[in-house]
């Protein structure tokens, strides 16, 4: 884990076995910023959903693929960036999930992006070269 000023980073493999570690990493730093327990819980869940989407969709469950997580803050905001080298996510093609319809069709999934948007104040998707980035912001 590298630390530079108020920026913290964590490199992990894309694996659901790392989920608890990733959640704990962001929660630990969010706590230091004096966020409420509820806000920390929201950030924990948003990061879980973003990382899970990378494992399942960007890397299609192929193990040992790299994921870089970076977290930083200033006086006004906390930002979390998660980068991968997998397939990019087409945010334009994403529709809000109709849960009733999904249950009827015994479908699951498709809820992560919706939750992330509900839980964070600002969410951006960037593609640079072969790298995807989701950048999530919480106002302080």
């Amino acid at each position: 884990m590298a630390t530079s000023n108020n920026i913290h980073s964590l490199s992990v493999e894309a694996s659901t076995s790392q989920l608890a570690k990733v959640r704990d990493f962001v929660a630990e730093h969010a706590e230091r910023l004096g966020l409420s327990e509820k806000e920390i819980g929201n950030i924990r869940l948003a990061v879980d959903e973003a990382y899970t989407n990378i494992i399942k969709h960007a890397y299609k469950n192929i193990p040992a693929k790299p994921v870089e997580i970076e977290l930083g803050s200033d006086n006004s905001q906390l930002w979390i960036s998660i980068k991968d080298e997998g397939e990019s996510f087409d945010v334009e093609a994403y529709n809000e999930p109709d849960i009733r319809e999904r249950i009827k069709n015994k479908q699951r999934g498709g809820m992560g992006v919706y939750l992330i948007r509900k839980l964070m104040d600002n969410v951006q998707y960037n593609r640079s070269g072969h790298m995807n980035e989701i950048r999530m912001i919480k106002h302080l």
């Binding site: 869940l45 879980d48 849960i99 249950i103 015994k106 479908q107 699951r108 809820m111």
Partner: peptide, 17 residues
């Protein structure tokens, strides 16, 4: 203590059956 959408997905998959 905690649930993510993957957990909710399990309930979604079986409730209709």
């Amino acid at each position: 203590d905690y649930i993510a959408s993957a957990g909710l997905g399990v309930f979604m998959a079986y409730i209709e059956d």
